[in-house]
């Protein structure tokens, strides 16, 4: 019951945030957005025709009314139809998000597991050669642009100039083997990149835990190093690690896939957004911006609730 009331309060606290996000999106994309009047009218329209279209599109309504109409669009997920394909925005999202998930979930899972293991190794051998070389690789991963990695991995694995063992691009998934065929190179490229940032962050978190007294005591009692790492250290540093994973999730799934999917022609949400950005397809951008932001705010609440469940030291205040 306490947890429920706590969640409810957290939700109400996040209302200003949701209000702010929708307001900014409204101002940028609707209020100062492109005027569609002249696209709908022919050449040399009369003043009366212009006013008529203005009225139909709701341009003559006051600021607040237009904002509430926009807000209703968000809540009901009714953003109308795509400007370029004419398909309903909600059905585009429903069709493409599963594809993106199929690509992003393996990246998320393997990227984080590899990063945590590398971070544990680096933190355990802090200051030694292993630590320095792991961190050097991490800095390189941080310094390379996503685009460079994607192009490079495509040359290495997919082109006749490299190993040429995977298809260059596309997505003709029928079975698990064909899924592996198309998903491997994009996943490898993204995992390589995510290791850079994640390992640095996780190492910092683990180093902080490793220097604490309880770890020294456990070590003095002769705890096996592996047990020490996983039980005494990793378990205690799980909160910042989980927070980072949950918070970056909405960004990775919607925004992070833009480059990857457009470059590998994967028909996920990223490719849709890429086309929408290039052609200025506003209904799709509106939907993506507002809903990613809303999901982000919800995941913030989720992490707060998770703290209290995972860590008994955090009290419900």
């Amino acid at each position: 019951m306490d947890t429920f009331i706590y969640s409810l309060r957290k939700f109400f606290q996040s209302i200003p945030l949701i209000f702010g996000v929708t307001l900014i999106s409204f101002v940028l994309m609707v209020y100062f957005g492109p005027d569609k009047t002249y696209d709908l009218l022919g050449k040399n329209p009369t003043q009366q025709q212009i006013e008529e279209v203005h009225h139909q599109l709701g341009y003559d309504q006051p600021f607040l009314t237009r904002y509430f109409i926009f807000f209703k669009e968000i809540i009901t997920f009714d953003f109308g139809y795509s400007d370029s394909t004419g398909e309903k925005v909600s059905s585009i999202f429903a069709r493409t998000i599963p594809v993106s998930l199929a690509v992003q979930l393996p990246i998320l899972i393997s990227g984080n597991i590899i990063s945590i293991i590398l971070a544990l190794i680096a933190a355990y051998f802090r200051g030694k050669m292993i630590d320095k070389s792991v961190m050097f690789v991490a800095v390189i991963g941080m310094s390379v642009s996503y685009l460079i990695i994607v192009i490079l991995f495509q040359i290495i694995f997919c082109s006749s100039y490299g190993l040429n063992i995977f298809p260059v691009q596309g997505w003709e998934v029928e079975s698990f083997t064909s899924y592996l065929k198309y998903v491997t190179v994009p996943v490898l490229a993204s995992v390589f990149l995510s290791i850079g940032y994640n390992t640095r962050f996780y190492r910092a978190v683990i180093v902080e835990e490793i220097t604490k007294d309880h770890v020294r005591t456990a070590r003095a009692f002769g705890t096996h190093p592996l047990k020490l790492l996983f039980k005494n250290i990793l378990k205690n540093s799980l909160i910042p690690i989980m927070t980072r994973i949950i918070i970056t999730l909405p960004f990775i799934i919607i925004a992070g896939s833009i480059v990857l999917e457009s470059y590998f022609s994967i028909p996920g949400i990223g490719l849709v957004l890429y086309d929408a950005i290039l052609t200025g397809d506003l209904p799709i951008i509106k939907a993506a911006v507002t809903w990613t932001a809303m999901i982000y705010v919800l995941s913030l609440i989720l992490t707060d609730i998770m703290y209290t469940v995972v860590d008994p030291r955090v009290t419900l205040k």
């Binding site: 200003p16 945030l17 702010g20 996000v21 900014i24 999106s25 101002v27 940028l28 994309m29 100062f32 957005g33 492109p34 909405p250 960004f251 919607i254 925004a255 833009i258 957004l273 929408a276 950005i277 200025g280 506003l282 951008i285 993506a288 911006v289 990613t292 932001a293 982000y296 705010v297």
Partner: peptide
């Protein structure tokens, strides 16, 4: 509140939205 709002919007989409507004 303001930086919470800005942080909630994914960066590349925010740029796309701003590009719409700034033509």
């Amino acid at each position: 509140w303001f930086y919470g709002v800005i942080d909630s919007i994914p960066f590349y989409l925010f740029v796309a939205a701003l590009a719409v507004a700034l033509a």
